[in-house]
Simulated assay, not measured.
Amino acid sequence: MDTEAVRSFVRAAELGQLQHAADELRVTQQAVSKRIATLERELDVRLFTRTARGVELTLDGQAFLPHARNIVTGVDRAVTAIKPGSRALRIDVLGLRSAQAVVLHDYWRSHPETDLDVVTLRVNDPRVAVTAVQAGDIDASFRSVTDPATLPRDVQMIHAFDSPLELLVGPRHPLASARTLTPSQLRRHRIWVPGIAPRSEWAEFYDQLATDFDLRIDAAGPNFGNEVLLDILADSADVATLVGSRDRYIWPTNHDIRRIPIVNPTLAYPLSLIFPRANPHPGLRAVITHFGSLAPLPEPAWTPSWATTPRRSDGTIEHTRRQRSLPAAHCRHH
């Protein structure tokens, strides 16, 4: 059923004249007449009778009118629900316990009037997220394309914030009593990071991290999720992993797991935000401004070579490479 024909019928019924309905709908009277005639053929009933003063509803038309109004209202609500600026700001994060979700939650608590829809695309390849941004399925995505030159011209990527890394260990691990650790102290220790997906940004991150600091990062074995990982850490005397300082992890109190900051340099994961160049969602700028209120990285810091430059004071971004500092974590941690 042609919803514009239904809309024409409703307005003609409410206004009593085809010309008035046509004027309101910004089409010709002939177009309104054709739409209604088509609708009558489809329904196999007459909806109007013509009078000297315009049109009047038939009994079938009177019966159809309330349902037709519901159809028009439903279509309008459906369009509003997906129209940028009318619907909720839809942002993709890598996980609902990730640093990205935590920062967005902090923003929402300060601005509870914000209509925010936090989603997880559950894809590893950032190019899939870029496609979703282009298609308008999401308004922004916390992903990083490690070679910004390959970004499509109609999307942009900005630096959002950095997530410092911490070592996560159980009570029997030899580093468990440390209050802070330097990267050199991590050498020769097994850092287990299951679930490093090929072609993902975090795969490249861990690659550079291991190379630059001569770390033993092990991705072997299946990824059974955070709960299993935490159980293994709690019982192990030689396994550790890396997490972001803002990432949320919950474990039983008897696990006695410790989170130990890494310093000199701080290792941090640079989180980027991808969104359309033209007509971004009007609610997005306030979220981006919120990133600027976050505490800066403790210096010195390390991030991978593909980390983007922080925002300028006017909120704009240029894609340039900066000195090596560090990012925060892979899909488990984001």
Rank of each mutant, 00 (worst) to 15 (best):
T3E: 14
S8Y: 08
E14N: 08
L18I: 08
L18S: 04
R26V: 15
T38G: 11
R41S: 14
V45P: 15
R46Q: 15
L47M: 12
L47A: 07
T49F: 05
A52F: 00
L57A: 11
T58P: 05
L59Q: 13
L59K: 08
L65R: 00
A68R: 04
R77N: 05
R77A: 08
A81I: 03
P84S: 11
G85W: 01
I91V: 08
L94H: 04
G95Y: 06
R97H: 14
Q100K: 10
V102K: 14
V103N: 05
D106F: 05
Y107G: 08
R109F: 12
D117R: 15
V118P: 01
V118M: 06
N124D: 13
N124K: 10
D125W: 00
D125T: 03
V128A: 13
Q134F: 08
S144W: 01
S144T: 13
T146D: 10
D147I: 01
R153P: 09
V155Y: 09
H159W: 07
S163I: 11
E166S: 05
L168S: 06
L168K: 06
R172G: 13
H173G: 10
L175S: 09
A176T: 03
A178S: 14
R179Q: 12
Q185V: 03
Q185Y: 00
R187I: 00
R187W: 01
R187P: 08
R187D: 01
R187E: 00
H189F: 15
I191E: 10
W192I: 10
V193P: 02
P194E: 10
I196N: 07
E201F: 11
A203K: 12
T211E: 11
D212P: 00
F213Y: 05
D214N: 02
R216V: 01
A220I: 01
A220W: 07
P222K: 07
G225C: 15
L230G: 03
D231A: 13
I232E: 13
V243L: 07
S245E: 15
R248V: 15
T253I: 13
T253C: 06
H255N: 13
R258S: 12
I260G: 06
I260N: 12
I262A: 02
T266H: 02
T266N: 00
S272Q: 11
F275N: 06
P280N: 06
P282K: 05
P282E: 12
G283A: 15
V287S: 06
V287L: 08
G292Q: 14
G292V: 03
P296R: 11
P300R: 02
A301Y: 02
A301K: 00
S305L: 00
S305Y: 02
W306R: 02
A307W: 00
T309D: 13
R311T: 13
R312D: 11
T320S: 14
R322F: 05
P327V: 03
